[in-house]
Each structure stands twice: as C-alpha cells, then as structure tokens.
Amino acid sequence: MPESIEPGERKAGPSLNPSAVFNLSKAVVMVVDDESFSLRLTTQMLLGFGVRTRYSCESADEAMTTLKAHPVDLVIVDAEMPGKDGYDLVRWLRRSGLDNAWSPALMVSGHTPESKVAKARDCGANFIVARPLTAALLLDRILWVAKDVRGMLETSTYSGPDRRFRELGPPEGVAERRADILSQGGLESLEDGRLKA
C-alpha cells in the first residue's frame, strides 16, 4: 500500500509554482458530482484554495436550478453521472442563454466510454481533466482555465471554446499531463492541437 498521501500533499504539477499568488476568494464555484465522497472532497479542496462561495450539486438537474438562479464563475463537473451526465449539463449551459452560459467549465473524467466520445468532444467544456483528481491537479487546472484566452464559438452544432489549440497550446508556463490526452481514450480529435510535435 502506498504511504499515506493526503490530496493536498501530492506533488504539484510541473506548472505549479509554490510561490505564485492567486485570489479565488471572490470566485463563485460550483461542483457537480453524483458521488457524495468526491463531491465533498472536491469542495473541501476548494475551501483550502480560498474559495468562499461554493455550490455542491449531486445531479445535473440540481445544478441547472442553481445556474438559473445564481451567478457562477466556474463549474467543475463530473463527466459520468446517471441520467443527465456532465456532458449534457455543459452542453445545456452553453445553449441556455443564461448569464452563466459562457462560464468556464472543467470536466472531470476517469474513463470515457466509447459511446460518449463524440458527446465529450462536442459538449463545450473548456478542459477535460483526467482523474485521479488531486488538489494540486485541481488547482493547476483552475489556474489554467483562468488563463484561457480562447474565444467562444457558437454554431448550429457546437457551442463552447474554440477547440483549435494548434496555434495556441496550453497557457504560457503550463505543461500538460500526458494522461490528460491519453486517458481519454478516443478524444484525440478534441485534443488534436495539443498533440502537435
């Protein structure tokens, strides 16, 4: 068994500078996860990051109700949920016409079933984060998405961030995890630009 490692003690990703300063105290963050344990764990991590206002939702329907009623600056959503999943939620959000419609969305995914690859690619999330979700990885990706300067596209078939990374790449100073690309089994087209030589 591995030695005891707490989520916040995991080694930071290569892009995390321990002395870098950020401020999330006024950010409103929503976490959506049907697994109670993961939901509480992620929410507690956010508390450690200084996020004061957090919404915890156990279903996409609950999240939709909150998103209609309250401003949210960042949505962190579990991809795999029974009924409406994380992909459905973000797709709905992007087309909702709400003030929150273009709020950054981080999709947290372990394994993506082949039947949902296209759905994942087209849902409109800013980034898909591969589990396991540690505190260091979560913070890394939150800061990453905060630096995301891609424009938003709205077409008849897709609403979300411009997926053409080829010229842009990850934000300056951010190294991507190979797992974020490879563990999504079949999401190569989504990550196409990030696979550049």
Binding site: E9, L16, N17, S19, A20, F22, S25, K26, G50, A146
Partner: peptide, 27 residues
C-alpha cells in the same frame, strides 16, 4: 475574458504552496 480570469488576479489571495497546504488540512 471570463470573470474568473479577472478575479484570480485581484490583490490579496494566497500562494499556491499555502493553498495546497490548506487543502491538505481541509481534507
């Protein structure tokens, strides 16, 4: 530009190292 990108650069806040320590404590 997302509101998040403006908020994250506001004065105050914390360091990455302190935030990860706090997250470890909270969890």
């Amino acid at each position: 530009r997302s509101k998040l990108s403006r908020l994250v650069n506001q004065p105050g806040g914390t360091t990455v190292g302190a935030a990860l320590e706090a997250a470890a404590f909270e969890t």
